[in-house]
């Protein structure tokens, strides 16, 4: 039953991605200032939103793990699996942001990269979660999960800084298009509809990978627990 529903959800997600791509490339009109290149927004901004959301899931997982590790070890392992899945899939989406951004900037700004607050804080965010994943991989023993959880909480501090960076500081990166108080900011309805489809599609895709990653990690935990038990049982 679980397999059927995940397969069904995967099929819907792929259909949404195709529909979103069609909307972005063929339905949305050219932008008056940027022409064709603006279509990168249909991948760039949803990817950033997904990354932020999944880093938040990582934060919940980290706090949950730290809070329950002594009294509810089973629940703590579940939290830890969510934390790992959130960080890992979040890093993938953050990498997409850091790849599509320079490609877009080269055409729209004339430069690949600049050390403005938005770009720099995003790179730092990516580095923090990459180090989180490295720590999980290379530190051994039961302390690893605790250390990782603490690092994850620090990493989450950067998310609101990235989000607010182009409101707080003068950046090369444009000021916010949405939820913005800047005059003239916004998106025409004919471009907004494809944008919302792409938001939905990329979120659906991200959640699919997140759930699969969570289950793989749970599986690994169960195998590891069984192996530990077997090792103890040996004479």
């Amino acid at each position: 039953m679980k397999k059927v529903s995940i397969s069904l959800y995967a099929a819907v997600t792929v259909a949404l991605l195709i529909w979103g791509y069609y909307q972005a490339i063929f339905v949305a009109p050219n932008d008056a200032q940027q022409g064709e290149i603006f279509r990168i927004i249909y991948c760039h901004v949803p990817s950033a939103s997904v990354a932020f959301t999944f880093f938040f899931i990582n934060l919940v997982g980290c706090i949950g793990f730290l809070a329950s590790r002594h009294d509810y070890p089973d629940r703590a392992q579940k939290f830890d699996a969510w934390a790992l899945a959130g960080a890992e899939v979040g890093v993938v989406f953050c990498s997409v942001v850091l790849t599509t951004g320079p490609l877009w900037g080269r055409r729209a700004w004339g430069i690949w990269w600049t050390w403005d607050a938005r770009l720099t804080t995003t790179l730092v965010l990516w580095l923090i979660y990459v180090s989180y994943l490295l720590l999980r991989r290379f530190a051994a023993g039961p302390q690893m999960q605790t250390l990782a959880a603490v690092l994850g909480i620090f990493g989450a501090l950067d998310v609101p800084i990235v989000y607010m960076s182009n409101r707080w500081w003068r950046t090369q990166h444009p000021a916010p298009v949405f939820f913005s108080s800047a005059p003239g900011a916004g998106m025409a309805a004919s471009m907004l509809r494809p944008f919302l489809w792409n938001m939905l599609a990329w979120f659906a895709w991200g959640v699919l990978i997140l759930i699969l990653r969570f289950h793989v990690e749970r599986h690994r935990q169960q195998i590891a627990a069984r192996e530990a038990e077997a090792a103890l049982a040996e004479p």
């Binding site: 009109p29 008056a32 940027q34 444009p174 298009v177 003239g184 916004g186 998106m187 004919s190």
Partner: peptide
């Protein structure tokens, strides 16, 4: 010696 364009946070089709 360097020139950068800044993009407005306004997206609208050409009219």
């Amino acid at each position: 010696t360097e020139l950068q364009a800044k993009c407005a946070s306004k997206y609208a089709p050409t009219q």
